[in-house]
Design a protein around this nucleic acid. Structure first.
Length: 357
DNA sequence: TCTGGGGTCCTAGGACCC
DNA sequence: TCTGGGGTCCTAGGACCC
């Protein structure tokens, strides 16, 4: 069974949130810019969403506690995320990008995969398309991106990350394994912090190490993921570029300014989250059946509890009542709560009562 | 360093039905 | 008294992505 040759592009906007902010506020240019939680003079809770390259020079990274970012660079411009603006810009970019391919898959707010197999005869033509995309995004949106071109999604994704910002990296099928081999395993898709640690314990540091490792041991230790990782390490990935279908869940969560043992206040916040979630479901014409609440205590211990209702609903009262019931056993006077969340799933699109089953 | 908020997918055990 | 297999749904937790 021979695989059909494919050519895939992965497009990744450069430090998207801060790039949009710099575009809207030219006075920030040349200065370190950080989008994320309010640093509150180093006492803030929460993390960095995005930092621009000037802020990265100071050591600031995505996911870093905002308090630490403040210590590293108090003179940076700190901004709260303006999601409605980023979504607006994202929609425009995706409209530009999707024209260049038959198969298009958005990945998060600022990334996309394109299958251009039917549109090009070789990698040189694919590279030309990538340049055209970069040019059009720059002209219309005044933003730069980095693009990876490869024989599958995995290689394209790793390639887009290889040269940043404003990069373009082409990796042909017969170069894939050699391209990947020297890179740390963490660069592979689906290899996060935990998996990286486990691999390190086996003496596997680079993707090349992983490719040479006995696949039967990997499958024994990691199950399906192990087999998958070994294939990826050799540059093999058969997953298709496919348009995402509708959402599978809707959720909101919030971290309290200060950990609290005030059950009254927690339940009030829960009601507000439930209201937001049900309103959002309603606005997207979704009914839901499964309700999940999440609680995180001050020591970061996190629990979820869920209940599937006997009926589909989109009513705020149903969600609030169920969420309260689910959360109740976790509200204990001796435990302070850091975060609570509400999620609905088992979603069905519908407009009227008749869709309730 | 002290850890956000929005998601998806996978696993494993148990209930329940045929 | 001890004992099936397959399928589906539900629940809780965990890893990963941006």
């Amino acid at each position: 069974m021979s695989e059909k040759r494919r050519i895939i592009l992965h497009i990744d906007m450069d430090h998207f949130f801060t790039a949009v902010e710099e575009r809207e506020h030219p006075e920030y240019r040349g200065r370190p810019v950080v989008v994320g939680a309010d640093p509150k003079q180093g006492k803030g809770r929460g993390v960095v969403s995005t930092s621009n390259y000037e802020a990265r020079k100071a050591g600031i990274r995505s996911g870093m506690p905002i308090s630490r970012a403040w210590k590293l660079c108090p003179e940076a411009v700190y901004l709260p995320p303006n999601f409605s603006l980023y979504i607006e810009v994202s929609l425009e970019i995706m409209d530009i990008v999707r024209k260049y391919a038959d198969k298009f898959e958005q990945w998060g707010i600022d990334e996309a995969f394109l299958d251009v197999t039917t549109r090009v005869k070789d990698y040189a033509e694919a590279e030309a398309i990538a340049k055209q995309i970069k040019q059009e995004i720059l002209e219309k949106e005044r933003l730069t991106c980095s693009i990876g071109v490869g024989p599958n999604k995995l290689v394209a994704k790793v390639a887009s990350d290889y040269q940043k910002p404003d990069g373009l990296t082409v990796v042909k099928e017969n170069e894939a394994e050699r391209f990947l081999a020297p890179l740390p395993v963490r660069k592979l898709l689906w290899v996060g912090r935990k998996t990286e640690e486990k691999l390190k314990a086996l003496g596997i540091n680079t993707i090349g190490d992983l490719a040479r490792y006995d696949p039967s041991v990997l499958s024994e230790k990691f199950g399906v993921i192990g087999t998958q990782m070994h294939l990826m390490a050799r540059g093999i990935d058969r997953s298709e570029v496919e348009q995402r279908t509708g959402a599978k869940s809707i959720s909101h969560e919030t971290t309290f300014e200060k950990d609290t043992d005030n059950a009254e206040a927690v339940l009030k916040a829960l009601d507000a989250l439930a209201e937001d979630v049900s309103k959002e479901a309603l606005s997207q014409s979704f009914f839901f059946k499964t309700v999940t609440v999440k609680v995180r205590y001050e020591n970061f211990e996190t629990h979820t509890r869920s209940k599937t209702l006997q009926f589909m609903t989109n009513r705020t009262q149903d969600l609030q009542k169920t969420a309260r019931e689910l959360l109740q056993p976790y509200l204990r006077s001796e435990r302070k709560v850091r975060l609570i969340g509400v999620r609905v799933s088992s979603l069905i699109k519908g407009e009227k009562q008749k869709t309730l089953v």
